[in-house]
Amino acid sequence: MIIGIPKEIKTLESRVSMTPGAVETLTRRGHTVLVESGAGKGSGLPDEQYAAAGAKLTDAAGAWGAEMVIKVKEPIAAEYQYLRKGLLLFTYLHLAADKPLTEVLLKSGTIGIAYETVQLPGGGLPLLLPMSEVAGRMAPQVGAHHLEKSEGGRGLLLGGVPGVPQASVVILGAGVVGTNAAKIAMGMGAQVTVLDVNHSRLQYLDDIYQGRIVTVSSNEPNIRKAVTYADLLIGAVLITGAKAPRLVTRDMIGTMKEGSVIVDVAVDQGGCVETIKATTHAAPTYLVDGVVHYGVANMPGAVPRTSTYALCNQTLPYAMKLAQKGVEALHEDRSLALGLNTYLGELTYGAVGEAFGMPSTTVEKVLGLA
């Protein structure tokens, strides 16, 4: 198969979808890999390393002209021109928060396989996992920075000092993002509260941290109370492939302390805070009622070296299956098949259809597995 690795062009997005080592693995199996010149520069991976691994260096049009394109982030408007019927696109899509992209993928007939909806039999999300770990660990350090007075925050040190209380960190969600956020926030010395609807997750966190964090059942009254004392509020809620639920309403924002900070990691799925909107690394924050809102939708892009390797470790096995067998790989791998979001003009992920009131079908029907 001819595989394209284009350069990411989203604002300050420095990750790349495949490392030179991954490219070598693919080329040794007889595949042709077209890498856009400069694609790996932001991750410290120069063109020379890709060439030595067997890649052919090209321009954006060349990389997008491949049979399968492997990316990190969803295509943005400048890349819509490259989408076409039969193109196999393997990347994060987050369609439930992006109607224009959904419509373009359907109109173009692109076969879109989303990293974030590839799902293991036990419910695990192997291709979302590494970036959730990175984003979760970044959230407290990003929040701590924006709590500084010069960044618009309350002027608090997250861990406090002897004789001065530490800051209060409230985390909505005890999944991968929330658990990693709790680990780092606690390590920085903050007072940490985690809310979730899943009691077993709260039990797990209570056990491993031996009561050093506060666990609270997630419901509207408890969320409403928690936001009033939060110095840093971290949104870490996920419903696979669907728009994130709005847990923090507009009126709740008015009850938060001036200079407190919100970091909504769920923003790439629409966010769990009503007042959140997607921002960029170039302009990451804005104020609503004196509360600092951080809504960067590609947080791991700030640490591209770590993120590129973490992501590629997980995506490469699936990329190899697709390179070897194309769409036929979906017939053999149920987990990979669940990643299919668009197929030759049909929407194949129900949660996206529900988000936009669009008709959808099933993976089984379009692949002839029903």
Score class of each variant (00 low, 15 high):
280 T>R: 08
244 A>H: 04
275 T>D: 13
266 A>K: 00
333 D>L: 07
280 T>W: 08
280 T>C: 09
254 G>Q: 07
310 A>R: 03
328 E>T: 14
240 T>F: 11
315 T>Q: 08
252 M>N: 03
278 A>G: 13
232 L>D: 00
241 G>Q: 10
256 M>T: 01
277 K>A: 11
259 G>K: 01
332 E>P: 10
243 K>W: 07
332 E>L: 12
246 R>Q: 14
326 G>F: 01
246 R>L: 14
329 A>K: 06
343 Y>L: 07
241 G>M: 09
297 A>Q: 09
281 H>S: 11
317 P>M: 01
318 Y>F: 15
331 H>L: 15
358 M>G: 10
272 C>Y: 02
326 G>P: 05
329 A>R: 06
237 V>H: 03
348 T>H: 13
249 T>I: 08
354 E>N: 14
285 T>M: 11
324 Q>T: 14
277 K>H: 15
264 D>H: 02
255 T>N: 11
299 M>L: 13
330 L>W: 09
254 G>D: 07
291 V>P: 07
231 D>Q: 01
237 V>W: 03
296 V>G: 04
259 G>E: 02
290 G>D: 08
236 A>E: 00
302 A>T: 13
220 E>S: 12
307 S>F: 04
220 E>L: 10
240 T>I: 13
354 E>W: 12
228 T>N: 06
288 V>E: 14
226 A>D: 03
340 L>A: 07
260 S>A: 07
276 I>N: 09
251 D>R: 09
240 T>Y: 12
296 V>N: 04
240 T>A: 15
230 A>H: 01
219 N>Q: 13
275 T>S: 13
238 L>N: 07
295 G>C: 04
233 L>P: 00
261 V>G: 01
224 R>C: 06
285 T>V: 14
